[in-house]
């Protein structure tokens, strides 16, 4: 199965107008689902995304950190919902009809975990070859470095690619990173 298909090229003409040449989404590089937190763009490996759903009021978990919004019932599985905006201290956490939850799952030898993340809006799907991914500058920023896989330039914007496995780890250390 080594059929190589022409890489679909995303032309960013305008912020909200994206045209795809060809409809093939199979590409040489990895694909990332990008989303917005306030004005910033982030991306996660698309293979770890199980679904995108609207915001539902979750059940509170007592004495949990403020970014843990609670748990929801995802077809019989109890899935915690975390608000990335609070976790990364970006923008304001408001819950509007357009607020969405990206459900991410990691299943490998080390961990098996499903969690939902509240983001402001889902943007698009990004193809990025590994040489396009640049490491993040090591200064500043509220997002702890272990969560960041790299940066990708898309047109005038910079998308921060997040390390999903780290994201799903519930170690509280990285959270209060200053």
């Amino acid at each position: 199965m080594d059929a190589i298909i022409e890489v679909a090229e995303i032309n960013r003409l305008d912020k909200n107008d994206i045209s795809l040449e060809g409809i093939d989404f199979i590409s040489g590089g990895n694909q990332y689902l990008t989303f917005r937190l306030c004005e910033e763009h982030y991306g996660v490996d698309i293979l770890s995304v199980t679904e995108i759903r609207g915001w539902d009021e979750p059940t509170l978990i007592p004495n949990s950190p403020n970014y843990v919004k609670g748990v929801i019932n995802l077809r019989g599985v109890i899935v915690p919902i975390l608000d990335l905006r609070i976790r990364f201290q970006i923008g304001e956490a408001s819950y509007t009809p357009t607020t969405v939850v990206i459900v991410l799952a990691v299943k490998n030898d080390r961990m098996k975990c499903t969690m939902g993340f509240v983001v402001d809006a889902v943007s698009d799907v990004l193809n990025a070859n590994s040489q396009d991914i640049k490491s993040a500058p090591s200064f500043g920023g509220l997002v702890a470095p272990q969560y960041i896989q790299g940066l990708v330039n898309v047109g005038a914007d910079v998308v921060t690619l997040l390390n999903v496995e780290q994201l799903l780890k519930l170690d509280d250390e990285g959270l209060h990173y200053e």
């Binding site: 059940t59 949990s64 843990v68 748990v71 019932n73 599985v77 519930l170």
Partner: peptide
């Protein structure tokens, strides 16, 4: 009884979760 720990972690004072008739989660 559904486990909270599968996707989250142990919570003090909570032994698990369940799904009620209306689909919502109760601890």
């Amino acid at each position: 009884i559904k486990s909270l720990e599968t996707n989250y972690k142990r919570v003090d004072g909570i032994s698990g979760a369940t799904i009620l008739g209306d689909g919502s989660v109760a601890l």
